[in-house]
Design a protein around this nucleic acid. Structure first.
Length: 899
RNA sequence: GGGCGCUUAGCUCAGGGGUAGAGCGCCGCCCUUACAAGGCGGAGGUCGGUGGUUCGAAACCACCAGCGCCCACCA
């Protein structure tokens, strides 16, 4: 119970109100959330353990980078996971949400390097060991922050299972995985061009390179023939500096322009070497001049062409992308962009440049961590994963439905990506990460083993040196769903929770991470790592722009939690969680969430008070004791529960959030509670009890349906029902189809229309809401007795002093006539009305009705429609038309009587 | 160069063969005993364009345009 004192402005309630229900009139999220979270953790509500009596439901958290703070995108992704896991828990499943963090190789190393640089420290000076030590210190300092943030948002992780990708157990899993893949022939070492980031001085996998268009230049220049310098072959390039490493010229074999020159050589103006001209299919004769300069050491296509023709690799760049000593002296030491200009100038001096097209937009690869232009580079021997044997099963798992993507369209993106996937470079020339478990002896033998070896496996030499490289971060991440559960050991956790049930993540790491988990999972564990993959969009600012610090449109989830609370943030996010690629999010959504939490709080105050001190699970009253509006409420409630249940099963979070919001605000609060006040405040004791218990029953179940999205406010209120210890482990509401009541929905629907018509009339005439009117109701087609059962509610909601039932319009004179849903309502004028206003109202309505009737009339005049449309549709049109015609007639006579 | 997504109210987006929806914003009136973080009422869309299928299209199909994303070794 909150100790909060009532605010001074709060109205005090009658003395009969029991103290425990005298809740403050505003919900205070900040005073509530932390206390409840501590309760949950203390009671072990989020713990999960293998339990043969229950089915498991397991989600592993996509581990955030250990040294980064969580942003709104994390909050969003984690919310979706929390909604799923909380619902599963309520459904009685053994629900495990396993949290953890990632060491994030490059990202973390770069951050720590930058921090050390501020202190004037270069990692190369302090050495590998000391540097890694520093990174661990960093991890210790900032790693805990993620946990705090996640807890503040209410995430129901099993914190006893927190993992880190460099934990001992996970490090062991990485080694076992490497060794098994190596022994299976799926990991090999080779020298080939790799993506190289000259800034981070490491290689990158293809997935870690982002391509975008750069304004560059296209230089066309001439290589003179060796035997006839007055003629030559023109070639085009966007990177003219690479000509320093050219070792050949290629043309297409069928290109008639060049058939005569194949086999000849051209003269390199700076190296003085003769470069052969050869025919190769890789050349596109329609591009540029149709002749290509071939730089095998600096271009992947050229590398292959060079291989085919036995041309040498001439590496002219250093690791920092400066011109190396292999190049002519005059260019050495220049960085690649300086060299580009210098080479162009030198060529121009020789009169060899034919054309410079500038700007010339062309795609260039960039490092996904630092945006530096990536260089195709020979980085020595590198380790690769052979993907061909892994692709097939990984693709099949998706096609078979063993793994389902939500939304389904991602299945195609996934399989298409697999189709063109090439071998995965897993070596990184970094210090922070899992060392490659391979050792070399002086004779060059390789020893690849799980435990550090003391001697070479081949020759027994004890002079072993471990491979200096570390593994791609994603190599350890790909093991996450099973390494966190104890793999490679066959633990009870692993056999119980694996394969995990659902993975929820963003599309930006579908290939980087998701696809690789599937490939490695199938190979190493023999099973899929998860059955469902939910791919969500990226959180953007309210106008769809990417959130970035420089634009200043970022939202820090912690700021929101500290200011408004976690529930408002959660609901605001859930409301937007559609299948769209972008999720626009701004303060207004938090506000909406805050207002909703407050609305729930206040409606609950009323309902708890209406229970009049009764506690325990609310009892559903006998159907016989219920009024028609009460049956309507149950029917609408049931529809909402079914809709939410279905939506969440299909991971349609926004739909679920909106269904609850609509039901709660409009149907429960605006209609039902307002209608029930009639019985609550004016009924007999039995009526009061029925009404109170009914509202409580509906509210209590609604809280349970809402709990996964707004855990705090629902718990805070739910505990006051005395229906159990905690809503966290309360059962998910079962469906009760017998509560569906078409008749009640139809009748109360009519009542709603009547009420709205009367309210509208009142507003149109500028009458005060507080002014009671008296009215007579006359049916046009229906039997008025059917609606008579809703009379008290209509009177209350429309503020009528009396509502009489008349047989026909002719009985009523001197009254304004309103029409709604087959009824006419005659509101007594009693001289208070402005006749001009009334005439205006009638004319406007008449025009509307006639226009609408006209549409229906022409539709019914269409023989094709009448004969081909389903009968029910035609009948509906007829009913609608006759009703409109009657209303129009009534309006006309009304106008006539007013003059 | 392939593939995918989007285009509906002022803004951000749901929906989906048979009377156009929500939140926010806007305009009125109302501090009515759960809530002014509220209530009641209202204004505001030829559902991107063109053709087609159909009795009927905003929805299904084709093409087009604009925007966005992913994949891709055309120098």
């Amino acid at each position: 119970m909150s100790e909060q004192p009532a605010t001074a402005s709060a109205p005090s309630h009658p003395a009969s109100t029991p103290d425990e229900f005298d809740l403050p009139p505003a919900y205070d999220a900040l005073a509530t959330e932390q206390r409840l979270y501590e309760q949950w953790v203390e009671s072990g509500s989020f713990r999960a353990d293998p339990n043969p009596d229950r089915e498991p439901y397991c989600i592993v958290l996509p581990p955030p980078n250990v040294t980064g703070a969580l942003h709104i995108g994390h909050a969003f992704q984690q919310l979706l996971q929390d909604i799923v896991i909380r619902r599963a828990r309520m459904q009685g499943l053994e629900a495990l949400w396993l949290p953890g963090t990632d060491h994030a190789g490059i990202a973390t190393q770069v951050v720590v390097e930058r921090e050390l640089a501020k202190e004037g420290i270069d990692r190369r000076e302090i050495g590998r060991e000391a540097f890694v030590e520093k990174v661990w210190e960093w991890k210790a300092q900032y790693g805990g922050r993620i946990v705090e943030q996640m807890q503040a948002m209410g995430n129901s992780c099993d914190w006893s299972r927190l993992r880190f990708t460099m934990d001992d157990g996970l490090a062991h899993a990485v080694r076992v995985a490497f060794v098994r893949l190596y022994e299976g022939g799926l990991i090999y070492r080779g020298e080939r061009l790799v993506n190289w980031c000259p800034r981070d001085t490491t290689s990158l996998s293809d997935s870690e390179v982002n391509h975008w268009d750069v304004d560059g230049e296209l230089v066309t220049f001439t290589y003179p023939f060796s035997d006839d310098p007055s003629h030559g072959v023109d070639v085009a390039t966007t990177r003219v500096e690479t000509m320093l490493g050219d070792t050949g010229i290629a043309v297409h074999p069928t290109d008639e322009r060049y058939t005569g020159v194949i086999g000849k050589t051209v003269h390199h103006p700076f190296t003085g070497q003769d470069l052969p001209i050869a025919a190769d299919d890789a050349v596109d004769p329609t591009f540029g001049t149709g002749a290509v300069k071939v730089t095998p050491a600096h271009d992947p296509t050229d590398f292959e062409i060079g291989q085919r023709h036995g041309w040498p690799l001439m590496n002219i760049l250093t690791a920092q992308a400066r011109i190396a000593d292999t190049a002519p002296e005059r260019f050495r030491g220049l960085d690649r962009y300086e060299a580009r200009a210098a080479v162009l100038e030198a060529l121009q001096e020789l009169g060899l440049v034919k054309n410079v097209e500038r700007p010339y937009a062309h795609p260039v690869g960039h490092c996904y961590r630092c945006d530096t232009e990536v260089e195709p580079w020979l980085a020595g021997l590198q380790w690769f994963v052979r993907v061909d044997p892994l692709k097939g099963p990984a693709k099949q798992a998706a096609l078979d439905g063993k793994i389902r993507f939500w939304p389904e369209r991602w299945t195609h993106a996934y399989t298409q990506w697999l189709d063109v996937l090439r071998d995965w470079n897993i070596s990184r020339q970094l210090w922070w990460g899992h060392r490659i478990p391979v050792w070399y002896c002086p004779d060059g033998h390789m020893t690849c083993v799980v435990e550090d070896p003391s001697a070479c496996a081949e020759c027994g030499s004890e002079q072993l040196r471990q491979d200096p490289d570390v593994l791609d971060t994603w190599f350890s991440s790909q093991l996450w769903p099973f390494s966190t559960l104890g793999w490679p050991e066959q633990t009870t956790d692993l056999s119980y929770f694996y394969p995990t049930t659902t993975l929820i993540t963003g599309y930006e790491i579908l290939y980087l991470w998701v696809a690789r988990m599937i490939m490695s999972g199938l190979y190493l564990t023999g099973d899929v790592p998860f059955h469902n993959v939910v791919i969500h969009g990226l959180v953007r600012d309210p106008h769809g722009r990417k959130m970035s610090k420089s634009v200043g449109n970022t939202i820090d989830p912690m700021d929101v939690v500290e200011r408004a609370g976690a529930d408002p943030l959660r609901f605001g996010l859930a409301w937007q969680a559609t299948e769209a690629q972008n999720i626009p999010f701004g303060e207004e959504h938090v506000d909406a969430g805050r207002r909703f939490a407050n609305k729930i709080w206040n409606a609950s105050r009323l309902v708890l008070r209406a229970r009049d001190g009764r506690t325990g699970p609310p009892a559903l009253p006998d159907r016989a004791a219920m009024t028609l509006p009460e049956r309507w409420l149950l029917s609408r409630h049931e529809a909402m529960v079914e809709e939410v249940d279905q939506a969440l099963t299909e991971f349609h979070f926004a739909e679920a959030a909106q269904a609850i919001h609509r039901f709660f605000w409009s149907e429960f609060c605006d209609w039902s509670i307002e209608a029930e006040k009639e019985r609550l405040y004016g009924g007999s004791p039995a009526e009061r009890e029925t009404a109170g218990e009914l509202l409580a029953w509906v509210l209590e179940r609604t809280l349970r349906v809402l709990h996964p999205m707004m855990p705090f406010v629902t718990e805070e209120i739910w505990q006051r029902f005395g229906a159990g210890e905690s809503i966290v482990t309360a059962p998910w509401p079962e469906q009760r189809p017998e509560l569906t009541d078409a008749e009640a929905e139809a009748r109360f629907g009519t009542a709603q229309e009547l009420v709205t018509a009367i309210r509208r009339f009142r507003k149109a005439h500028g009458l005060r809401d507080g002014l009671s009117l008296s009215a007579t109701l006359a049916p046009r087609e229906s039997d008025s007795k059917e609606i008579e059962s809703v009379r008290p509610e209509i009177e209350r909601l429309a503020n009528l002093s009396s509502l009489e039932f008349g047989e026909s319009a002719s009985e009523v004179t001197g009254a304004a006539r309103l029409s709604a849903d087959g009824f006419d309502v005659f509101v007594r004028l009693e001289g208070v009305l402005d006749l001009d206003v009334e005439r205006e109202r009638l004319r406007a309505r008449l025009a509307q009705v006639e226009a609408e009737a006209g549409r229906h009339r022409s539709k019914l005049a269409n023989d094709a429609f009448v004969s081909k449309a389903p009968e029910a549709v035609v009948a509906k049109e007829r009913v609608r038309l006759s009703s409109l015609d009657e209303e129009a007639e009534g309006l006309r006579s009304q106008l006539a009587s007013l003059g």
